[in-house]
């Protein structure tokens, strides 16, 4: 990731002009390439979209039709049976939603604040030891304790096993996001800091009132990656939460519904049916749609920051 941005920056600096400014007569090979390009890009785009269509269609099919004909691209015998099951006994999924939303909102806000503060301080050239602190943070990406020592540490020393905190705290920040923020903060002119100092403002006030408003695009980008981390989290939950909590984070909830028959049944606890009477195929697909839905709806609005994260990217720590 890091090399990427450096490369891009160097190349942009070398060739600021963009191509395609003049009209030159196109040869036959140009038209062939262009034709192939439209075709391949279209096919690849469809290929990316297809699995989503499969899942949504399946969720709106009747279980009987799926059992008979299998999954397909179009809904088979259109039915909202699976959604009715979910929303008639919505206790579990609502609980998961509440847990995930709370974690995402507070995790993103707190993480963003700490990351912004750190990124701002670490690029201040009048801050002694900034390079040492940067390396202290960066080193964790080079060498880390494996999963086993971390697991022992978190459960037996910090005693966080079975608590939401085990998940919430570990997702608060990553070295990469701090470096990303640091690079964004570098674009804030040092004169801003100096003018603040002349006015007698302390470092924290300079950060909060002068620098933070200038970092809005950075906050959006880093915030997006943090929020995505919380929303898509299932891994730490599977390690530290297991079945210790009643309401699992959304993706871990989905993971269980898909992979264990028991969780599938519990997901509609209250429905007086046996596991064989459940529309298990369509129920899994509908749960996937419900668990993914909101993030896909938000996607068009945040996509631009998603790209910034890669292209502005991180230069070396």
């Amino acid at each position: 990731m890091t090399a990427t941005a450096a490369t891009l920056k160097a190349q942009r600096a070398a060739h600021p002009s963009k191509q395609g400014t003049t009209k030159v007569k196109l040869g036959a090979s140009d038209y062939v390439l262009r034709g192939i390009s439209y075709l391949v890009v279209s096919v690849f785009t469809l290929f990316c979209l297809l699995p989503f269509v499969l899942i949504i269609s399946a969720s709106f099919s009747s279980e009987a039709a799926i059992m008979r004909d299998g999954f397909g691209l179009w809904p088979k015998e259109f039915s909202t049976e699976a959604y009715q099951f979910i929303f008639r006994f919505p206790r579990m999924i609502i609980g998961s939603y509440v847990v995930t939303i709370l974690m995402t909102v507070f995790g993103t806000l707190i993480g963003l604040f700490v990351i912004a503060m750190t990124g701002f301080a670490l690029q201040r050239r009048d801050f002694p030891y900034r390079n040492h602190i940067s390396f202290f943070i960066y080193f964790t990406t080079l060498f880390s304790a494996g999963l086993a020592p971390t697991y022992l540490w978190v459960t037996q020393v910090l005693h966080l096993g079975g608590t939401y905190m085990a998940v919430f705290l570990q997702l608060l920040m990553t070295p990469w996001l701090i470096i990303l923020m640091k690079n964004f903060a570098r674009s804030v002119p040092f004169e801003i800091v100096e003018s603040g100092k002349l006015d007698g403002a302390g470092d924290f006030r300079i950060f909060l009132q002068l620098v933070l408003p200038m970092l809005k695009p950075a906050l959006a980008t880093v915030g997006l990656f943090l929020a995505l981390g919380y929303w898509n989290e299932w891994y730490l939950s599977s390690l530290y939460l297991g079945s210790a909590v009643e309401f699992k984070p959304l993706q871990y909830y989905l993971y269980n519904v898909v992979n264990t028959a028991n969780a599938l049944k519990n997901s509609v606890a209250g429905a007086n049916v046996t596991i064989t009477q459940l529309p298990s195929n369509t129920l899994k697909m509908a749960t996937a749609v419900v668990a993914t839905g909101p993030i896909i709806l938000l996607y068009p609005f945040v996509q631009k920051y998603f790209v910034t994260g890669l292209t502005v990217g991180a230069v070396k720590g």
């Binding site: 700490v114 990351i115 503060m117 750190t118 701002f120 301080a121 670490l122 201040r124 009048d126 801050f127 002694p128 030891y129 602190i133 202290f136 943070i137 964790t140 880390s144 304790a145 086993a148 020592p149 971390t150 022992l152 540490w153 978190v154 020393v157 910090l158 705290l169 570990q170 608060l172 920040m173 070295p175 701090i178 302390g202 470092d203 924290f204 950060f207």
Partner: peptide
């Protein structure tokens, strides 16, 4: 620069606890 140091402290503590803490294990 004490204020800048304090501003870095939460992140330093975070990595100390969650990244360096498990190393001796």
């Amino acid at each position: 620069a004490r204020m800048l140091l304090i501003m870095c402290l939460p992140a330093i503590i975070f990595f100390l606890v969650f990244s360096y803490g498990p190393l001796p294990g």
